[in-house]
Design a protein around this nucleic acid. Structure first.
Lengths: 366, 366
DNA sequence: CTGTTAGCGCGTTCAG
DNA sequence: CTGAACGCGCTAACAG
């Protein structure tokens, strides 16, 4: 027999049960004000007896704080964001806060809707991995701040927005990795998660523009790739950059295309896990072997990368740390301990394994 | 200049601005009751002008519904739960509900705390992947129901609990996979994520007991392994079951031990991704090759599994579907459309790839 | 069709 | 040190 929705006991009922005034009960249960040990005991016993639990909603209404922070990410099923969210929620819970998570499918309008929703729920703060590429499209974040809700950005800083942000240096991490490839003697290096444009940019300038328009982290990684090329005086070849939708299938196709070029790449830089698996598929189809025929470096280390033959050289992102750091900044802001905003850059780790080797036939003609 | 926490406009202010009574404003903004088109227009304009947004907290207080469901999982950073949560939250948002996610680190006491917390927040329903192994330790879930909050279990059904649950048939999926291994001629099959006990059970009976005590899905998978052995009349060998903490390192160690046995296993069944990667490491260390020397089957397909050489045969779980199905059941219950609880079993998919082959030296002596 | 009024459950003065 | 009284912002009967 299902007990019908018995209205949860209120503080008044506890007071009645204990034979005291409401506010005496409220004070002991709320843990504020003075209450004689004797009455205190009676109230506690009464509360225990009838199974009293404070209504957090009512409490939030009076106090104005919900002890809840909102988190907005593109896709909670993506292991990267999973790690970030876990870092945030662990840090939040350590402070007695709950976490409201919204997954926006990488769509700006969903992000805007989510932000308003969370504002309506009166969250005490917001951590967001925003899909906004400039201040103009981030009005919703300003709005949150206007409502007195602190916002900190994670993973993706929005240029021109005066907000704390916790990120990694995608450009530099990529530059360094590609530089290592070049250091090994590679001259033709493919870049696998390129801009999602239909037509392949012919001029380098167009590519840079596309990268700038390419929301988020991928554009920065492409810049790093270009930086490395520049540092070493290598020519840019548009044929070596993937274009089109960012899917594993597309990556496989594009890498297959590169491999069939008269002068195929001898190394590949992959910006994401699926870019890497797509590349691996293309290599297998082409009958090529990792390291011996084509060197490989990827982003986002995973336990799989270390057990592949050969083990893959990867750039590891501190997912949990990104989350905890963002949460800490948020709480510092909530506590009013922060004056001006900052960009916090966390370190990535280059994990050298065996997928990088000198090219089979040195490009140097000298 | 940071705009100081300007108190968000209330419905009364909108009414004042529009020059109507509060409830007229409330009715148009709340979308209930009758309001003349003319006034309606005035109210809407006024709301727009001063940037009114309803306070969801206050609304929930009056109505008693929060339009929020709580989700409790062991670890949001685990891709499996990430997928499940995404399924749940997508389904929830389609119904206009938000999702409060709590990650419990696989600890029952944290789960209990999380449940009470969510009850306090007056969530309208709960989806939980519980760490409780029997009805006795699931008092918190009963409590939620006592408060009129519907609960549906996901991934893990709690025996003896009268709750809807959405699961997969771990036992049968494992039995089938192990049976295929046996069908290929394997006679000695290692089982990689065994019970987390310190001492290796000597008798089969002890192992079964341990499996029953082993919370959640792993115990069921072990049962399936045993079933397959029984079906084919194969003897059980305690040495072929991993024991100890469920970590990748431990798996590597235990598989290494099995491989060094006088009669080593010719196939391995891995219950999780990390069990698989640990096994792969052990194989490499031992200088053994997948399929040729040792066949492999794992749980939870991932894009990596398909690009390894050779590609890995895996059992795929419908993560998103588990989530959406659970959410749908929850809403049906909220809508009062369900009479009695049921166990919903979703299909897994056996993805045959190249990591399974007949044993190198047939065990058959005939 | 509109405005008045009474709660929802809790926090917080303010007398007593 | 305790209890009565009011307010948070909104919904929902209820008269008018």
């Amino acid at each position: 027999m299902t007990s019908e929705r018995a209205a949860p006991p209120t503080i008044s009922e506890v007071a009645a049960e204990a034979g005291v005034g409401r506010s005496t009960a409220a004070r002991t249960l709320g843990g504020y004000g003075y209450v004689s040990p004797e009455l205190r005991e009676r109230v506690l016993a009464a509360a225990e007896r009838i199974g009293y639990r404070a209504n957090a909603l009512a409490r939030s209404m009076s106090t104005g704080v919900s002890h809840t922070i909102g988190v907005i990410v593109a896709d909670i099923a993506n292991p990267f964001f999973g790690g970030v969210v876990r870092g945030i929620s662990d840090a939040a819970r350590a402070r007695g806060f709950d976490t409201l998570v919204v997954s926006t499918h990488e769509a700006l309008d969903e992000e805007v809707a989510a932000t308003d929703l969370l504002i309506d729920k009166r969250v005490d703060g917001l951590v967001v991995a925003s899909a906004a590429l400039d201040a103009a499209s981030a009005a919703h974040l300003e709005r949150a701040r206007g409502h007195g809700i602190p916002v900190v950005l994670v993973d993706r800083a929005v240029p021109g927005l005066d907000l704390d942000a916790v990120v990694i240096d995608n450009r530099e991490a990529t530059r360094e990795a590609v530089a290592r490839l070049i250091g090994e003697g590679h001259r033709r290096i493919g870049f696998v998660w390129g801009p999602p444009v239909d037509e392949r940019p012919r001029r380098r300038r167009d590519l840079v523009d596309a990268a700038a328009r390419d929301l988020w982290t991928d554009g920065e990684r492409l810049q790093g790739y270009l930086d490395a090329l520049d540092d070493e005086g290598l020519a840019f070849d548009a044929e070596l950059v993937m274009v089109g939708p960012k899917t594993e299938q597309r990556a496989e196709l594009e890498v297959g295309r590169m491999l069939a070029l008269p002068e195929p790449p001898t190394a590949l830089f992959c910006t994401e896990t699926d870019a890497m698996t797509g590349s691996l598929r293309a290599l297998r189809t082409a009958g090529l072997r990792v390291a011996r025929d084509v060197s490989l470096i990827g982003f986002d280390d995973s336990s799989w990368a270390a057990v592949i033959e050969p083990p893959l050289t990867m750039i590891e992102q501190p997912m949990l740390a990104l989350g905890t750091r963002a949460a800490e900044l948020l709480f510092a802001t909530i506590d009013g301990e922060r004056e001006r905003t900052e960009l916090h850059t966390l370190e990535t780790r280059y994990i050298a394994r065996a997928s990088v080797a000198p090219p089979a036939q040195p490009a140097r003609v000298e």
